[in-house]
């Protein structure tokens, strides 16, 4: 079953926008338009006449969007998701996930629910993905630091690779510090003493 509800997704992050669109399609919504910039937003709203507008909270143009709804002749009077206070839990989940939605007055509020639910779970999934990516990146950075420090230890102490690594591990354990911290100290010291 597909729905005829038109959804405009305003998201500066094209990857997240794609993930949201995919989720909405899976949930049976097919009339989806993506806008990444707020500059063309008035035109997009006029052209597509959406029933629902979804926007990410990181977008500083959210205030402009809200105002556009006040004055735009292109749209019937829209309202934000929390005029209806009946589902406080979902509203809270949306704000926490970093997404807000505007629905055109007249659209039954229960029809917003599955849309918002999809956006919330996709936003959360994207945040988790980004977190994992950041973590992977910082692990890679730490790996590089440790390798560099190991090289310094090998050179200065005339040790083999495994011995140098073991020495750093031991130091970290004795000082109850992370191996990457020890590596950072070694690199700093080596630079100061150069």
């Amino acid at each position: 079953m597909t729905s005829d509800i038109k959804i405009l997704v305003v998201d500066a992050n094209p990857i997240r926008a794609a993930i949201i669109e995919e989720g909405l399609r899976e949930a049976g919504f097919s009339a989806i338009v993506q806008v990444s910039e707020t500059k063309g937003l008035v035109a997009a709203i006029g052209q597509h006449d959406p029933d629902v507008v979804v926007i990410d909270l990181e977008n500083p143009s959210r205030d402009a969007l809200a105002d556009m709804f006040q004055v735009s002749r292109h749209v019937r009077r829209p309202i934000t998701m929390f005029v209806d206070q009946s589902d406080a839990g979902q509203i809270e989940a949306a704000v926490e996930a970093g997404v807000s939605a505007y629905i055109v007055d007249g659209l039954r509020k229960e029809r917003l629910k599955p849309i918002l639910q999809t956006c919330i779970s996709r936003f959360n999934a994207f945040a988790k993905l980004r977190e994992e990516l950041d973590e992977a990146r910082s692990q890679l950075d730490e790996r590089k630091l440790i390798d560099r420090a190991k090289g310094i230890v090998m050179r200065l102490k005339g040790l083999g690779e495994d011995e140098a690594y073991a020495l750093m591990r031991r130091t970290a354990m004795n000082e109850k510090r992370k191996l990457a911290d020890i590596a950072r100290s070694i690199i700093t010291a080596a630079e100061v003493l150069k």
């Binding site: 909270l57 977008n59 959210r62 205030d63 704000v95």
Partner: peptide, 15 residues
């Protein structure tokens, strides 16, 4: 934060 709408909403849901 980046917008007044966000501040209003985050206050409203007690974030």
């Amino acid at each position: 934060d980046v917008s007044w709408s966000n501040l209003r909403d985050r206050l409203h849901v007690r974030l």
